[in-house]
């Protein structure tokens, strides 16, 4: 079967991923491959943005920006995110 579903089917798995404290999520750095919990990252506060860098290589994992009343996240340097007990 080659028919696709629409994005609504992701409501379940994505609510699992983003269900609680994301600083305990494990991410993989796209630059050096380091796999660590987000809480170990280096965060540079340049409000209204935050630049989050890999604790191992210093490359950018993600940026977060408060754009008015909307929060934007750019996961440019994260190739995988993992949550679970």
């Amino acid at each position: 079967m080659t028919e696709h579903l629409d994005g609504n089917v992701l409501a379940g798995p994505l609510s699992e991923l983003f269900r609680d404290d994301m600083t305990t999520a494990i991410g993989r750095c796209a630059h050096c491959g380091d796999v660590s919990v987000l809480a170990t990252a280096l965060v540079y506060d340049a409000a209204p943005g935050w630049c989050v860098r890999c604790h191992a290589c210093g490359d950018v994992l993600m940026t977060l920006v408060w754009a008015g009343d909307r929060l934007r996240i750019d996961l440019r340097g994260v190739t995988a995110l993992e949550v679970g007990d």
């Binding site: 209204p48 943005g49 940026t63 977060l64 920006v65 754009a67 008015g68 934007r72 996240i73 750019d74 440019r76």
Partner: peptide, 21 residues
């Protein structure tokens, strides 16, 4: 550029308050 990829305005004129896209 770096911030313009995630939210900051591509031009950024303060008199037009072009903070975000």
């Amino acid at each position: 550029g770096f911030w313009e990829q995630n939210g900051y305005h591509t031009y950024g004129d303060p008199w037009q308050e072009q903070r975000y896209w």
